[in-house]
C-alpha cells in the first residue's frame, strides 16, 4: 500500500471562550491515501467540520482555540508550521470546498479573478497563462462559455454554478488532498448529483485524495470508499463502505442509517423513518462512559456508562468500532440494509 497523503494522530481541539475551555475533538486518528475518498459522517455538533477546519488550520488562533496532536503531510506536522509556511500548504497541498456556495465567494470580485488569485500567489505564471488556466478550470467544472463567465460576479450565478467556481478554485493547483465540507448540502438534489459526479471524475483523473464531510449516508454511498462516523468529538466507527453500511456495529451508525429516507423498490411504499431520540450532548457536559449511551436503545447500566469504550477492531479487517457491546453475539439482531 502507498504511504498516506495525510496522517492524523491524536487530534484534540479545544475552544476557549470567556475563560472557559471546551474540548470538542477528543483524539482523532485517521489516514487518507491518494485517490481514496474518506467520508466523515456525523450529526451537527459531532465535531466533523471542526476536525476538517483544523487540518487546514482555518480555526481561530490560540488562545481562542488550541489544536494538539499531529497532522502530517509528507513527514511534516502541519500544526507546527508558521502561518506563512502554512499558507504555502493551503492550495497546492490541501484545498477545501465549503458548505455555503452562496457566501463562500467574495461578492465584489469577478469569479475569474478569484480563481486567478488562487494561482497567482503560488505559481510564477504570466497573466495570459493564468487566464488560460482559469478558462481550463471553468471548463473542467462544467461552466458553459467560460471565457465570458469568468468576468461574472458571484451574484450573477446560481448556487450550483458558484459551487463549481469554488471547486475550480480548490482544484486550481491540483492539490494532493481535497477537503469537501458538505459541498452539496445547500444545493438542489439534481445539482447535488452533478457536483458529486464532477468530484468523482476529477478524482479519477488526478488521483487526488478526498476527505468528504457529510451527514448524508446517501451521499456517502455514492462517493466514499471508506467511512468514519463521528460522535461527540470521537470516532465511533470506521471501516470500508461495505463494513459500515452493510454491517454497522455501533448503534449510533445504525440510527443514522435508519434515518435516511428510502423508497422501497416496489410501489414507493416506505416504512416509518427511524430517528435517534435526543440530541448530541454539549461538549461541556459529556456523559460518563460511552458518549452515546443516554440515547442508545441498546445501552446497559454497568456496561455502557462506566469506562469509555476503545475504538477496537471488529472481525478480521480494518473495521473499527467504539462500543462495549458490539462483540456480544445477540447484539443487534439484524444489520440495517443498504439501498
Amino acid at each position: 500500500m502507498t504511504d498516506p497523503v495525510l496522517s492524523v494522530r491524536d487530534l484534540r481541539i479545544r475552544f476557549r471562550s470567556g475563560g472557559r475551555e471546551t474540548q470538542v475533538v477528543h483524539g482523532v486518528d485517521f489516514d487518507i491515501r491518494g485517490g481514496e475518498t474518506l467520508a466523515l459522517v456525523g450529526e451537527s455538533g459531532s465535531g466533523k467540520s471542526v476536525t476538517s477546519f483544523a487540518l487546514m488550520r482555518l480555526l481561530p488562533e490560540a488562545p481562542r482555540c488550541t489544536i494538539e496532536g499531529s497532522v502530517s503531510m509528507g513527514g511534516v506536522n502541519l500544526l507546527e508550521l508558521s502561518e506563512r509556511r502554512m499558507a504555502q500548504v493551503r492550495g497546492p497541498r490541501i484545498a477545501m470546498i465549503f458548505q455555503e456556495p452562496l457566501t463562500s465567494l467574495n461578492p465584489v470580485h469577478r469569479v475569474g479573478d478569484q480563481i486567478a488569485e488562487a494561482i497567482r500567489f503560488h505559481r510564477k505564471m504570466s497573466k495570459a497563462d493564468i487566464r488560460a488556466r482559469v478558462i481550463e478550470l471553468l471548463t473542467l467544472v462544467g461552466i458553459p462559455d467560460p471565457a465570458r463567465r469568468m468576468h461574472a460576479y458571484p451574484g450573477e450565478m446560481s448556487g450550483g454554478m458558484r459551487q463549481r467556481v469554488v471547486i475550480a478554485m480548490a482544484l486550481a493547483l491540483e492539490p494532493d488532498l481535497l477537503i469537501a465540507d458538505e459541498p452539496t448540502t445547500a444545493l438542489d438534489v439534481t445539482v447535488q448529483a452533478q457536483i458529486l459526479e464532477l468530484l468523482r471524475q476529477i478524482q479519477r483523473a488526478t488521483n487526488m485524495a478526498m476527505l468528504f464531510i457529510t451527514h448524508d449516508f446517501g451521499v456517502v454511498a455514492e462517493i466514499a470508499e471508506r467511512v468514519m462516523v463521528m460522535y461527540a468529538g470521537r470516532i465511533v466507527e470506521q471501516g470500508s463502505l461495505a463494513d459500515v453500511l452493510s454491517n454497522p456495529r455501533m448503534p449510533y451508525t445504525r440510527g443514522l442509517l435508519a434515518s435516511v429516507p428510502r423508497f422501497e423498490d416496489a410501489g414507493l411504499k416506505t416504512g416509518p423513518l427511524g430517528t435517534i431520540e435526543g440530541f448530541v450532548p454539549s461538549p461541556d457536559n459529556l456523559p460518563a462512559g460511552c458518549s452515546f449511551h443516554p440515547r442508545c436503545p441498546h445501552a446497559r447500566p454497568g456496561i455502557c456508562d462506566g469506562a469509555l469504550p476503545e475504538l477496537a477492531a471488529h472481525g478480521a479487517g480494518a473495521h473499527l468500532v467504539r462500543c462495549a457491546r458490539s462483540d456480544e453475539p445477540a447484539f443487534g439482531a439484524e444489520p440495517a440494509e443498504v439501498s
Partner: peptide, 8 residues
C-alpha cells in the same frame, strides 16, 4: 475563510 483556504 475561502481566501485563507486558497493560501493567500
Amino acid at each position: 475563510r475561502t481566501a485563507r483556504a486558497k493560501g493567500l
